[in-house]
Write a protein that binds this DNA or RNA. Structure first.
Lengths: 144, 144
DNA sequence: ATTGAGCCTCCAGTCACTGGAAGCCCTATA
DNA sequence: TATAGGGCTTCCAGTGACTGGAGGCTCAAT
C-alpha cells in the first residue's frame, strides 16, 4: 500500500504520516522503488493515533499509549493514569477559557459598537478600573 | 527605566518584552550604554498587552487593538467586532474541549485501572466498536 | 580591582504539523 | 517511443508566542 491510500484509509494526511515516521511512531517498510510500503498494521496504528490525537493526547502520550497497546503485559492502571492526567489538563483549559469567555462577553455587552470612539473594551484593557473590571484579576491568575 | 523594573511593573517578563520590541509592538528608546530606556507610555502599553493576552487575543489582534487604542478617530464597532470574533473562537474551543472531556471521562469510568491488561480505553482507541464508541465520531469531526 | 547582578544580542528549541521546491517513478495516451 | 500527469521522495522553512542558554558588555558596591 502506498502512502496515498493509507492516508485515505486512516484519515491521516500523507505529510503527517511521514512526520510520524520521522519521529518514530510508525516504521513502514520500503519497496524497491523507495516508496513506503504500508501493511494493515500500519494503517491500524495510524487510525489509533488519529483517535488518540482527536482526544487531545500529546504526541508523547500517543507514543506511550501505542507502546502500552502493544505490550501484552501492561496494566490497565497505567493507561488510566495517563487518561486521568489528560482529563485534568483538559478541565484546566476549559476553566481558563470559560473565565476568559465570561470577562469578554461582559465587555462586549458593555460596548455600544457604533461609530463613536468610546469603548469600554479598550478602557478595560488600558487598565481603567472605572469600568467592568474583571480582566486584571484574570491577568494576575495567568501570571501565576 | 530599565527592562527589569518594567518587567516587574507590567508583569511581562524581560524576554517577552524584548520579543515584543522585535515584532514591533513597542518601541522603547535607548540609553547611551545600549540599554533599553522605557517611559511610562511603554509600561502602560505592556500592561495593555498583558491584559489582552490574558483574554486570549492573538498577538496580531493585540497589535490591532493597540493601534485602535491609540487612534482617536476609531469607531468602537471595530473593537467590538474583533472581540466578538474572538469570543466565537473561544466558544468553539470550549465546545471542542467539552466533547473531548465527555468521551474521555466515559472511557476512564469504564476502565478498571488495575494490574490486568484489559483496557476499554485502548480498545476504543484501537477502533474496537464493541466498547463505549464515541471517539471515532469525534475523530471524524476533527478531520473536517 | 574585583565581584556579581543586570543588561545586551543571537541562536536554538518548543509543539505538531504544513507548505513548497526540486526531482524521481509509474502509468497511460498519442 | 516520447511525453504528460500524478504520485512519490527528500529537505528546508515557517507557524505562534515565547523561552532557554551562551557569550559578552555595563554598572554599582565592596
Amino acid at each position: 500500500m502506498n502512502i496515498g491510500e493509507v492516508a485515505e484509509r486512516s484519515g491521516i494526511p500523507p505529510k503527517t504520516i511521514r512526520y510520524y515516521e520521522d519521529i518514530g511512531l510508525i516504521r513502514p517498510q520500503r519497496s524497491g522503488n523507495g516508496y513506503r510500503a504500508f501493511r494493515e498494521l500500519d494503517v491500524h496504528k495510524l487510525a489509533f493515533l488519529g483517535r488518540a490525537r482527536a482526544l487531545g493526547f500529546s504526541i508523547e502520550d500517543c507514543r506511550t499509549l501505542l507502546s502500552l497497546y502493544e505490550d501484552e503485559s501492561r496494566e490497565s492502571a497505567q493507561v488510566k493514569a495517563i487518561a486521568e492526567e489528560h482529563l485534568t489538563a483538559i478541565d484546566e483549559k476549559i476553566t481558563q477559557l470559560q473565565s476568559m469567555r465570561e470577562t469578554l462577553s461582559h465587555l462586549i455587552k458593555s460596548c455600544h459598537g457604533d461609530h463613536r470612539p468610546d469603548c469600554p473594551i479598550l478602557s478595560d484593557l488600558a487598565g481603567d478600573p472605572t469600568v467592568v473590571r474583571t480582566v486584571s484579576s484574570l491577568a494576575n491568575k495567568a501570571a501565576k
